[in-house]
C-alpha cells in the first residue's frame, strides 16, 4: 500500500520545523529517517495531513565531545553512530547495540533520535541509553529543556517529548574504559528483540567496580536491572558470581506475552542474557 495523501514540508532549521509543528499541531507528524513512520503510514495506521521532514536540518546531525559528555545529534544515522570512534571509546554500549538494530539498509536511513523518540519497547537503543544515564534535549517553542533518561520513556511508544516539541540531541555521560556488551535474543535474522540485555561494567583488576544494565522488551519501557547492578559491585567476573547476581534480572519487570514467548519465558531469558552480557562486558 501507499500512504494516504499528505503535504510534505522540508524545513532547514529547527525553528522552521517548530513553527510548522505549532501551525499544524495534531495534523502533523515529524519524520526523521522514516524507517518506522513510513511502514506505519503505508499500512494506514497513521495518516497525517502534514509530514515535517527533519532530513534537511544539518545542525541535527553529528557527534561531538563536550567535556565529560558525548553529544549525539537526533538526526545522526544508525550507521554513523555505529562507526563513530568517540562513542566506541566513551560509550561502547551504544556502539555494540546499534549494529544489532534492524539491517544495513535500515541503518543507512534510520536515526538515533528517531529510534529513541519512537520508543518501541523492543527497540535496541532505549536500554543502552537508559543504562548510560543519557540526557535528552527536547526543544519547543519556549526553548530547550533537558530530560533525564529515567523520565524520558513514559510508556509504549510514549516519551516526554511534547506534541509541540522535537528531540534535538542526546547527551551521553562518558564511560571511558568501561567494557560493554549487548546480548540480543531473536529467532530469525533482523528480528526485533524478544529480549535483549545491554551491560557495561567498570573493572578494577578482576573485580567489578560498577555495572549498568539496561533491559529491552521486559516492560512497556526500557528498564534498568538495578538489583543486579548493586549485587555485582565488588564481585569477581566469574560465571558463578555473575550468574548468582543475574538471578534478580527480572525483578520489577513486566514483560509482554506474545507469539515469541510468554512473560515467564522472558523473565528466564532476562537472567540468562544478563549473565552472558555481563561476563562478555567484563572481558579485558
Amino acid at each position: 500500500m501507499i500512504p494516504a495523501q499528505f503535504e510534505y514540508l522540508a524545513p532547514t532549521t529547527v525553528e522552521e520545523a517548530l513553527s510548522a509543528l505549532a501551525q499544524h499541531g495534531d495534523d502533523a507528524k515529524i519524520m526523521a529517517g522514516g524507517q518506522s513512520l513510513l511502514p506505519v503510514m503505508r499500512m494506514r495506521l497513521n495518516a497525517p495531513d502534514y509530514v515535517i521532514d527533519l532530513g534537511g536540518i544539518d545542525s541535527l546531525r553529528g557527534i561531538r565531545e563536550e567535556g565529560d559528555t558525548i553529544v549525539v545529534g537526533a538526526m545522526t544515522r544508525h550507521v554513523d553512530v555505529g562507526n563513530d570512534p568517540l562513542l566506541a571509546e566513551h560509550a561502547a554500549l551504544i556502539s555494540r547495540a546499534v549494529v544489532h538494530l534492524a539491517d544495513p539498509q535500515v541503518r543507512h536511513r534510520g536515526t538515533f533520535g528517531g529510534a529513541l523518540a519512537h520508543a518501541d519497547p523492543a527497540g535496541d537503543l532505549g536500554g543502552p541509553a537508559l543504562a548510560l544515564g543519557a540526557q535528552f534535549v527536547v526543544t519547543g517553542p519556549g526553548g530547550s529543556r533537558t530530560v533525564a533518561a529515567d523520565d524520558f520513556f513514559e510508556d509504549l511508544f510514549t516519551t516526554a517529548v511534547g506534541d509541540d516539541e522535537i528531540l534535538t540531541e542526546v547527551r551521553i555521560p562518558k564511560h571511558t574504559g568501561w567494557g560493554a556488551h549487548y546480548e540480543k535474543f531473536v529467532r530469525v535474522a533482523h528480528q526485533w528483540s524478544i529480549v535483549a540485555v545491554g551491560a557495561t561494567v567498570r573493572m578494577d583488576g578482576g573485580t567489578i567496580a560498577e555495572a549498568r544494565i539496561g533491559l529491552t522488551n521486559m516492560g512497556s519501557t526500557p528498564l534498568r536491572a538495578r538489583a543486579v547492578e548493586d549485587a555485582l559491585v565488588g564481585q569477581p567476573a566469574t560465571e558463578d558470581a555473575v550468574g548468582e547476581a543475574a538471578q534478580s534480572a527480572a525483578e520489577g519487570t513486566n514483560p509482554p506475552s506474545d507469539l515469541n514467548g510468554d512473560a515467564d519465558y522472558r523473565r528466564h531469558l532476562a537472567t540468562v542474557l544478563t549473565r552472558r552480557a555481563v561476563l562478555a562486558a567484563a572481558q579485558p
Binding site: 510534505y8 522514516g34 524507517q35 511502514p39 532530513g55 550507521v79 535500515v106 543507512h108 536511513r109
Partner: peptide
C-alpha cells in the same frame, strides 16, 4: 549506500 526504496519517499 543501500536503502530499501519502498521505505523512502521519492521527494526524500
Amino acid at each position: 549506500h543501500s536503502v530499501k526504496s519502498c521505505n523512502v519517499l521519492a521527494v526524500q
